[in-house]
Design a binder for these strands. Structure first.
Lengths: 376, 376
DNA sequence: TTGAAAGCGCTAACAG
DNA sequence: CTGTTAGCGCTTTCAA
């Protein structure tokens, strides 16, 4: 695994390390040179092309040459440089752009992608962003690194920009319900999920239901930069909001949408304000579990319970099933979505050209955070 | 935005776009060619070297050339290929290896690293692993991609292997209390943190205290592969365990260490068994918050409370402060650790050669999950 | 079946 | 201040 520090030039083989490393501290950085394909070729007494064929399992290598080469590779601890490979073709790397690494639902997607990638020679790199407005830059950065495919989770970038990108490299958009001939999409069934939520709340007898969601537009740059212009009504949270409004209107009720940042503590603050109004809601449908947990903070802090204010979340993160929390939520199986996205990417790399839209089923998990209101 | 396949030479400048793009579907993948530094040079009527100097802000470019070049870059939407750059030197990329993307404490570290990296030209890539035994492969994979520096969170790999790696590329190990002349470390003050936990529990009157921790060895490969041999007593969880044992012994008490996987639900199962023994503990000191949450699941499910079994966690993840949970925990400020690691890496890239060990202070956050036992 | 040679796009000497 | 030149390590024709 580790090349021999005291390697000297025997048998006319190239020497990869200093003949005399300093006494008991390793050689200074840069002193050490990694084996290259040329070194391996020399050591095995064959050509670079031969080595290349062996490491790629390409057609046309005799068993005995393969053996020789593999021995040399092992001896020199040779590793192909990805950058050099990328210059000639593939980088064996898939990239995923992700907002809020701290959002457990999003990390479930990464887990699913990892699982799907495990049996392949591809490596996953994650490009995390701190603000939605950074999505475009992160995608560019992945493209600059010549990844073989890109997954993006509801990025705030324009459709035409994405189509441009996906002309050059396979792209899967996760979450957004776009229909493009250029790139594929994987989404949860947001309409169905919201239907299940609303039906559940109505069945319990709730009428004053507030929808707590993240602001559609987070930063001015998203407005000003044409790159970011896209149909925001195709985003998961917009769809949930639209379906919510629709349900309320159909029952002759007044939709109440409250906006907040994506942060749990901000959701708590916003909910706390909501509770002090004249006519507070008897139920809160939160756009995701992080927001829901924030609402529960405010409700618990006010000494209230599910009969006072019920809460429904979305995503069914681990915390939701905790007995001390017991949050009713919509399970949309992030890991499934992640592995599906990888599958689509690999298909594209394999040659598929028609675009595909996949929608995953979702299921409401009813728990103790929802109950019939005290006075209907 | 899109380069042109049929570029023709008008005005002596190379043309990268279609004059007439196809009606309503973009060109097929691969048809599109990105602008290269040569294209820019041609368009601006200068040499490649000149363009290179401009994009690197290198010394020796006249203002008027800079203007011309920048205009050409903008016009052609030129982006330097990282792979080509990497072959000649830096890739402007830092890598971080991380186990369990779903562990919030670990993602806090990533957040901190991102913040520290924001004002720099470096991009962060995350190499997530699924099992501890994959750490070595993930680090290799980052090295293969010629990142300019690597951060690794308590990787299960041998010290000598790490020293070899860090001879070729700057490395910061997060969590492990190694002292190496080759690589830097950033750790939390695990001894102090554990001291605070044990003092708190003793002060409350607890004597039967169990320590719930993850198994030291997760997979046989870690035992069998010499690459992985390292002083496991330098790992954070080992130190917490050792300090716990020490505290117990010093008070003449019997240390009780229970092992589990890193998973919340497994911790729940193990805790549930613990509660059914003859002489169950009055307090559980969990190695991290995920395990602590699992313990709380079992305790809540058994209808017990803090006076029956108190719980202390480690990391102080967001959930710990939730009023419905209120978990006493040790805050070790993951984002601080992450940005510190980046700082060290950038220093190394900047030329530092002596190794540095940084230890971050930690603080016990006392909440309602700990109370005096019913019968002392 | 094997190898020689031509680049991929960029940076870093070195000349002019 | 600017351009020419020589590679970095790999893959890929194309001959032998």
């Amino acid at each position: 695994m580790v090349s021999d520090p005291d390697a000297v030039d025997r048998d006319g083989e190239s020497v990869l390390r200093d003949a005399v490393p300093s006494p008991n501290s390793g050689p200074a950085r840069g002193t050490v040179r990694n084996a290259t394909i040329q070194d391996v070729a020399d050591a095995a007494g064959v050509s670079k092309a031969a080595v290349s064929k062996v490491i790629r399992n390409a057609y046309g290598v005799s068993p005995k040459m393969r053996t020789r080469v593999e021995a040399a590779i092992a001896r020199l601890d040779y590793r192909p440089r990805i950058a050099a490979r990328a210059m000639r073709g593939t980088s064996y790397t898939l990239g995923i752009e992700i907002a809020q690494v701290s959002n457990e639902f999003l990390t479930m997607i990464v887990q699913g992608a990892l699982d799907a990638l495990a049996p392949t020679p591809y490596q996953l790199v994650v490009a995390p962003i701190r603000r939605p407005s950074e999505a475009g830059a992160a995608l560019q950065s992945l493209a600059d690194r010549q990844v073989d495919g890109i997954m993006a989770i509801s990025p705030m970038v324009g459709e035409s920009w994405l189509e441009d990108l996906s002309d050059r490299i396979p792209v899967v958009i996760i979450g957004r319900h776009d229909v493009s001939t250029h790139y594929d999409t994987v989404t949860g069934a947001d309409r169905s999920g919201t239907d299940q939520v609303m039906t559940h709340l109505f069945d319990l007898g709730h009428r004053r239901i507030t929808h707590l969601t993240t602001e559609a537009i987070h930063h001015e740059t998203i407005i000003n930069d044409p790159t970011n212009w896209h149909r925001s009504d195709l985003e998961p949270h917009s769809i949930r909001r639209a379906v919510y409004i629709d349900h309320m209107r159909r029952r002759g009720l007044d939709p109440q949408v409250t906006y907040t940042g994506g942060d749990e503590l901000e959701a708590q603050t916003v909910t706390a304000e909501l509770l002090t109004t004249n006519d507070p809601p008897t139920a809160i449908f939160a756009g995701n579990d992080t927001l829901a947990m924030g609402s529960l903070r405010a409700i618990a802090a006010a000494g209230l319970g599910p009969e006072d204010v019920s809460v429904v979340g979305y995503d069914d993160i681990t915390m939701a099933s905790h007995p001390m929390v017991s949050l009713t939520s919509v399970d949309q199986s992030g890991s499934q979505i992640g592995s599906e996205a990888v599958r689509l990417l690999l298909e594209r790399i394999g040659g598929r050209t028609e675009s595909v839209q996949v929608e995953e089923d979702v299921h409401l998990r009813v728990r103790r955070s929802t109950a019939s209101p005290r006075q209907p």
